[in-house]
Structure formats: structure tokens, C-alpha cells
Simulated scan of single mutants.
Amino acid sequence: MNPIKVMIVEDDAKIADLHRRFTEKVEGFEVVAIAQGLDDAKEMIEIFEPDLILLDLYFPEGTSLEMLREIRTKGLETDVILITAAREMGPLKEALRGGVFDYIIKPVILDRFKACLFRFGKYHSRLRNPETLEQKDVDSMRHPSSSASAVTPSEDLPKGIDPLTLKKVQDVFKDPDIENGLGAEDVGSLIGASRSTTRRYLEYLVSVGFIYPDLVYGTVGRPERKYFRN
């Protein structure tokens, strides 16, 4: 099967290169072009016909939301993942209405990024399938969180995600007494796993919509990344 063609649109050369290296860590994806401006990006889309665009939001010439609208208006078979430092609700709403596949907030976490591409890979593969669809197929593509309460079948899991460990992590968040969120260290201590291993499972569950992350600021020290059940 041909690799998924990815185009990166990012005006910061160092960040663009970082996202390129992240993408190349995921099997089945190939970066075919990098554009550092919106005008160049529009030309490259026509030349390279990417399957997926990793799109920054803000550029010196404006936001990329207009380009997103153009992609949809022209009916191009290109999906978009918006990667941005913007935390305002307005751009998020407009991006979602414009049909982005996902919305990743900078700085990008590798595990979250990889899980997102893995999910896109499954979505893209199913769109290529010439067979007829069942309702469950549509639901899994459009509403991944609707099936996230159950453990994903092992054949659908990304490399490094064990179904038994995944179920343990999910079970932690099914506890009705958990309301204030849990950090990776908290979950790790409950299931008997290291913080780094637990973080990998947590970020996978974020990608499928089972939980969501947030930064919790304490009275002293750095903010802590905690996870909450959707």
C-alpha cells in the first residue's frame, strides 16, 4: 500500500523540521513537501496532492482558515490537522466547522502526535475500502469516542499499546469518585507501571476521545498535566 502523503505548512523552519521528524517516526506516512507560507502552500497542494496537511494557524500574511475553506470549497481529497499555539475557542470552532480531522495545541507531544496519525491512518484506510459500509464503520470513523468506553481490539492498537494494560488504565477512569483528574504518575501508581509507560497509554486514550488533558496549576512549581474522563 502506498504511504500517506503529508504536507507540512509551518512558517517556523525549526518547528516544521520537528514535525517532519515526528511524522517520519510513524510507519506508513511520508512527508512530500514543506511550505513556509500560505501562497506557497496553495501551489504545493496542486503539485503534490497530499492526503494530509499539517497546518499551522497563524502566518505573517494572516490565518490559514481561509485556505482551509478553499480546500473544502474545491472538494480536494485532502484532510487537515491544525497544529497551533492558539488556545482561543474561536479558531477551534471555525476549524472544526471547516472539517479539520484534529486540532493539536503546541508544543506538540510526540505520543499525542503519533496517536493522532495512527488514528488518521485507520480512517484513511477505511475510506479507500471499496466495500459497503455498516453503521459501526461510519461511527468508528466519525465518532471515535463513541466506542472508546470499550478496549480497542488488539489488532487495531498501535505498536507499544498492550490491550491488557490499556484496560487497566481505562478502568481507573471509570471510577465515579475520580472528579479532579489524574496525572501520569497517579495512574502509574494505581496500575503498577512507570510514569513514561503510563503517559503513552494516556495519550493514546486522548487520541480516541476516552479522556482529555488539561494543565492544572498548583500553588507552587510547574503546572501539571492531568487527565479527565470525557
Rank of each mutant, 00 (worst) to 15 (best):
R112L: 12
M67Y: 10
F48E: 12
M141E: 07
I191D: 11
D79F: 03
P107N: 12
R72W: 08
E77L: 09
K168R: 15
R225G: 01
E155N: 02
K42M: 14
D111E: 15
G192L: 13
R97I: 00
K159E: 15
P50N: 05
K167C: 05
T73M: 09
K122E: 13
I34M: 03
V31P: 11
K42A: 15
T165P: 02
V138P: 00
E30H: 05
R97S: 13
V216T: 12
E70W: 09
D139K: 00
V187P: 01
S196I: 15
V220C: 01
I4T: 11
Q36A: 08
H19E: 09
R222S: 03
K106L: 11
Q135E: 14
E70Q: 15
G62N: 06
L157Y: 11
E10T: 06
Y123T: 01
D102Y: 11
D111I: 05
R21S: 12
E203R: 11
Y212L: 08
R97E: 15
P163F: 11
D17W: 12
N129F: 03
P130F: 02
A150H: 04
L57Y: 13
F29I: 01
S64G: 03
D162W: 08
V169W: 06
F120M: 04
I81D: 01
A35S: 11
L52S: 00
T197C: 03
I71L: 14
V208N: 13
C116P: 01
T73H: 02
D186Y: 10
S189W: 03
G221A: 12
R200I: 08
D186W: 10
L133C: 06
P158F: 08
V138F: 10
D139I: 10
V206N: 02
Y58D: 13
V100P: 04
D171V: 14
L205T: 00
S154M: 08
L65W: 06
D186G: 11
